[in-house]
Structure formats: structure tokens, C-alpha cells
Write a protein that binds this DNA or RNA. Structure first.
Lengths: 336, 336
DNA sequence: CCAATCATCCGAAACGTTTCGGATTTTTTC
DNA sequence: GAAAAAATCCGAAACGTTTCGGATGATTGG
């Protein structure tokens, strides 16, 4: 509760001097500085960030807007890993993180920018937002520095971090073709995620380069959930009983597909190979272990924070960062 | 960027009136209120929370101090589920959440209370803190309203939420005895978690009520990780080859124990029954499915937020909330 | 020894709100 | 129609910092 004023009085100096002493300015005598620091400690002083923010017009907080923060989504650890990354980088700096959520009732009343403006965050990291979100443009065009996760758009104050989803999917195509598969299906995510588009394109291009067809009716769309993976797999195998490999745009859908196919008597990978995307925690524990594209999710968050804070502290240009990915071969895929 | 002042000027009223109009006070004429609200909208005004906080001495933020927020811990979804619960409740209120972390380099320099005082959070929820944490007492005795997760301690401004770990463990004892097991071992968590003590006590008491012994050398301590579960299981089975059932104080350790035992040629549950605790996501997907005590982790967070905000808004007494638990029978346990 | 330089300090304004206490005008009451 | 009450408004202080623009006294250079 002790303020700078109390220190000033007790130490017999002016408020200005206390402020300057505590902030390491050079125009204060070493002896008085010592005395000031001492009495500050004595009074158990801690600075009032709020008052500071008010005058500095900088809150030293960044907003973490995570829209996938709903209960069901705890399943994949994507969100938490991103958060951990953001948090780890931010905690090395002077910035604190305030959590915004968008699934709540607040969402529809207040736009993201409004939330940010009110809480006076210096910048914001946005994760899990859909491309059809009505406020996406608003935030990209807006004045608040922001970094998008997995949405490749750059604005005057907006950068992004992502992985190379096109390349990742391409590698899956390569891999499956290399195993001798030619009758291949795909279970994609919903169209309102950039990653869906990219993964489809990369996969398709990769296969067509090897003269392997991927007709429309062998591409089923889910919505990234396990449930939708089950349904999509059943639909796919019914209309195209000849497929020997399925690429799923998310691990969760891949896991759903596996259980559905197993329940229909298919053996994995002997009858059908399954490849996922994301390398979520589960994919290592499921039977058989899921072959997938591993993303550096933690790095996604870490780099997002880095990018944003660089923009804030050094007026760095908004730009993009691509983090690495890697094919993890496990037991759900095999030679034809 | 528009302030209350701008509105006042434009609407031709005083600052006071604008403030009172916008905050719904009764001593402002309905017509002037309308005009004020109108011009506020016109100027795209949004209130400056920081200025408000400064004068009100309330920041309307709560700190979420999660010390298990380290990379490895993303494995169990405990942390994120608690967070989701906290977030869900908080987002129905006027409170925002700021994330504190303790594994960072900041930790050793600044105590929790210092962090809270500087950021001027109105209250704090603490999760994953160890009982030997040097600052635990400080925070319980301190002036900042706080709610502890899974640490049953009440202070003048500190309440807690937890599950009944004693009862949960007791039920496991009941259950295993009911299956006919008499030669039973336990893999406990480290001693610096309250839950370890409670779970051990409950399990022991339950068994002894049924004249089943649980000698010291059949209780091995791990540290809640999968790795430690593996090691503990090997140690246990080596010194006590006769055990037919093992109770693990966490699912992660149980999963570790299962893989270790399987690698030694034991069949689960035919040779050895395994029961875990927590019902983490993984336990459902692992082979065989893990019998475990399910906790309402989401509820833990939700109730923690509720408790805290009640303390803040209505000066509610700090108190405790116990959320429910339940035995989930899966395939890792069977009749002897 | 005088002016210039330097080291050290401080007063006051500013940031954007809320709110206390009172002022002014209008309405009610008898 | 005057006093009392009600309705409506406002000035100014306060919250705890930072910082601009000087002020003061000591030191230096010639």
C-alpha cells in the first residue's frame, strides 16, 4: 500500500526524485538513491502498475484470445501447448498475459477490438479463430498490434505464425505414394479453417504429380472432431470400398476414423493406412500408434509471443514466422 | 481514444454528468442521458479500464497462478480443464483473468504476493503449487483473497476447492477388495502434494477395515509422471511378485505402470489389475482402458472462480467447495 | 573572481476516471 | 405565493505514477 509519496516523505526527497531513483535515471546522487531504495524496501513498496500504465499509455499486457477454449476442445492439447509457448516467452519479458475467451456470452456483444481497447492490452495473439468470423477483418485492419496463429494474413499491424501446411500435406502424399498406395481418400477439416484449404491443396498437388487421382467423392469434410472423423470414414469406405489409405486433416479425426474402421472389421494398417495431422498427445497412445505430421505447437505460441513483443518493443514490422513440421511415422500406416 | 472529456465537450455537459449517465445513475435526465449515450457511440468511445481501476482501487482482474504450466505437464489435461472452468465462470462476470506462471525465471525473484500486488489483481486462484513451496504460507496468511485448488487450507482470505481424495481412495480400496484382491500394492505421488497424503490414508484405512494389509514395502512413491510410474511398478513387482492389484495415485503413473508391466510379460487385467486416479483424457484411449477415479476437473476450476468472485463481490467468507468424484470402471481391473 | 558547466534535485501538469459536496432550477406542498 | 422538496447538474479533488522544464548550488576554466 505504500506509495512513492510515502517514500518521498520518509526519505526527505521529492516524488520526482524517488521515481527517478527507482527507475535508474542517472541524475540522482548515489547516496540518495541508496537511501530511497532502502526506505522503499522498508515500507514494503511495490509499484502500482495501473498508475504507471495510465500515464505511460502502455499496459504491458498482451491479450491471448483463444476461441478454441471450449470444454470439448481440451481433447487435443493444441491450445494448451500454444498457450504454454506464449506464456514461456512472455514471462521472460515485462509482459503479462490476459486471457480472453470468445465462446462466452460476451462474444456476441463485444468485438475483439472492443475487448482489447477496454482492457488496454498493448497487443493480442489470436488463436483458433475461424475464417468466417465476422470480426476477423476488423482485427487485421485494426490499430492494435496482433499476431494470428495459423491464419496467414498480414496487415499493417498484424503478423502471423504458422506451419507450412501445404508442404506438410505434400509430404504425406509423397509418403503414401512411396508406400505404393494409389487408391487414396482424404478426410478434411471444415472449410472455415485456412489449414484445411492448405492441406487439401498440398495433398492433391503432391498426388497429382505422381499421376495419382484424388477425385471429389473421395474427399469428405469433417469438422476436426473425433465424431466427425468416424462418420466421414464410414461414408468414405462405403462409397469407395477400394481405398487403401486415408489422410486425415487432424489427428482427432484420424483417431475417429480408426475406431470406425476397426469396428467395421478393417485392420489398420494391413487393410487401410491412416495418416493424421497435428501429432497430438493422443496419437502416440492410441492403438496402433498414429502416423502423423508433427507440428511444433509450443513453438507456434513461443514465436507468436516473440513476434508480437518485438512489434511492441522495437516497432518491428509485422511479419510471419513459419515453424517446422515433421512426418512422424508410427504404426497406422504400412506398405500396400 | 475518445475520452469522457470529449463526450462532455461535444454533448455540452460536464464530465461528471457523462460519467454518471454512462454508469446508470438516477440523477441525470433521460434526455441528456440519451444525448450522451449517442455521442459516446458517435465518438466510438470505450471506457479506459485502467483509469477506472486507479480511482476505484479495483482492477476487476483475477490472477490465475498455475505452477504446473510447464511443458511436460501438458500431458495430462488437468491444468487446461481447470483453466477452462475458471475462464468459463469468470467470463460470465466482469472479471478478466491474467495468467501468472511460476516456473519461469521470474519465480525466484518475486513472490506470488508481490506479483499480485504489482499487477493489482483483486484475487488469485492458485493451482498446482507444492506443499513445500516456500511462499505457500505467505499467500494463505496474506491479504489478497485467494482460492487454492487441491490444497485444503483456509485462511482469513483464503478458501479452497478440492475433491474428497480420502473418499475416492477409499472407494478404490472397496472396489479392489470386492474383486477379491488381497495382495495389493500402491504407487503414490510425491509427499509434497496433499492429494498424495489423502489418497494413501483413504486407501489404507479402507483396506484395513477389510483386514487387508498394506505393508510399507508395497507402497512406492513416484512423482506423478509416467516415467516414475514405470520405475515404481518395476520396483514393486520385483520385491513383491505376488501382488495382483496396484492402485496408482495418478493416471499418468498408472499408464507408466501398465506399459512397464506389459513389457515384463504381465497381462492386464488377467495377472494384475491397475487402478488410476484423475481420469485424464488418455486413460480412455490407452489399452486396456484404465479404471480410475474421475474428478470433475472442470468443476474444480469453475467452483474456484465462483468462490473467489463471491468473496470479492459480496464479501463472502472464504470457504471450501468439494466437487464430486466417481469411480470409472474400465478394462484394466478385473476379478481375481 | 566571474561566467560557464555540471550534478543534483524539485514543482507541477498530465493520464482518464469516479465521487463528494454543493449549486441551480423546477416542482410540490400548504 | 413562499417554503420545502425533488430533480438535475457541475467543480474539484483524488487515485499513483512519469516527465518536462527549470532551479539550486558546486565545480571548473581562464
Amino acid at each position: 500500500m505504500a506509495t512513492i509519496k510515502d517514500i518521498a516523505k520518509k526519505a526527505g526527497v521529492s516524488i520526482t526524485t524517488v521515481s527517478r531513483a527507482l527507475n535508474g535515471y542517472s541524475d540522482v546522487n548515489e547516496d540518495t538513491r541508496k537511501k530511497i531504495v532502502e526506505t522503499a524496501k522498508l515500507l514494503n513498496y511495490s509499484p502500482n502498475t495501473i498508475a504507471r500504465s495510465l500515464v505511460m499509455k502502455k499496459s504491458k499486457t498482451i491479450g491471448l484470445l483463444v476461441s478454441g477454449f471450449i470444454r470439448e476442445n481440451a481433447k487435443d492439447n493444441f491450445t494448451i501447448e500454444v498457450m504454454t509457448g506464449v506464456n514461456d516467452y512472455a514471462s521472460q519479458t515485462a509482459y503479462d498475459i490476459v486471457l480472453f475467451t470468445t465462446n462466452s456470452s460476451k462474444q456476441r456483444e463485444k468485438t475483439y477490438t472492443q475487448l482489447c481497447k477496454e482492457r488496454k492490452v498493448d497487443g493480442v495473439i489470436i488463436q483458433g479463430i475461424r475464417t468466417d468470423d465476422p470480426y476477423l477483418e476488423e482485427v487485421i485492419e485494426g490499430e492494435i498490434p496482433c499476431v494470428l496463429v495459423d491464419i496467414p494474413k498480414i496487415g499493417r499491424h498484424a503478423g502471423f505464425v504458422s506451419t507450412d501446411n501445404y508442404a506438410g500435406a505434400w509430404e504425406v502424399g509423397d509418403y503414401l505414394a512411396g508406400l505404393g498406395h494409389t487408391s487414396i481418400g482424404m478426410i478434411n477439416g471444415h472449410e472455415f479453417a485456412f489449414v484445411s484449404q492448405e492441406r487439401l491443396k498440398g495433398f492433391k498437388d503432391s498426388l497429382s504429380k505422381k499421376q495419382i487421382e484424388l477425385p471429389e467423392d473421395r474427399i469428405i469434410s469433417g469438422d476436426f472432431t473425433e465424431e466427425s472423423g468416424r462418420n466421414a470414414a464410414l461414408k468414405l469406405i462405403e462409397s469407395n470400398p477400394s481405398v487403401t489409405a486415408i489422410f486425415c486433416a487432424s489427428d482427432l479425426m484420424a483417431i475417429g476414423a480408426m475406431t470406425a474402421l476397426k469396428s467395421k472389421g478393417f485392420r489398420i494398417p494391413e487393410d487401410i493406412s491412416i495418416v493424421g495431422y497435428d501429432n497430438i498427445l493422443l496419437s502416440r497412445y492410441v492403438q496402433p500408434g498414429l502416423t502423423t505430421i508433427s507440428q511444433d505447437t509450443y513453438g507456434l505460441g513461443y514465436e507468436a509471443a516473440k513476434l508480437l513483443i518485438d512489434m511492441l518493443d522495437h516497432e518491428g514490422e509485422p511479419r510471419k514466422t513459419i515453424v517446422k513440421h515433421e512426418l512422424m511415422e508410427r504404426d497406422s500406416s504400412a506398405k500396400l
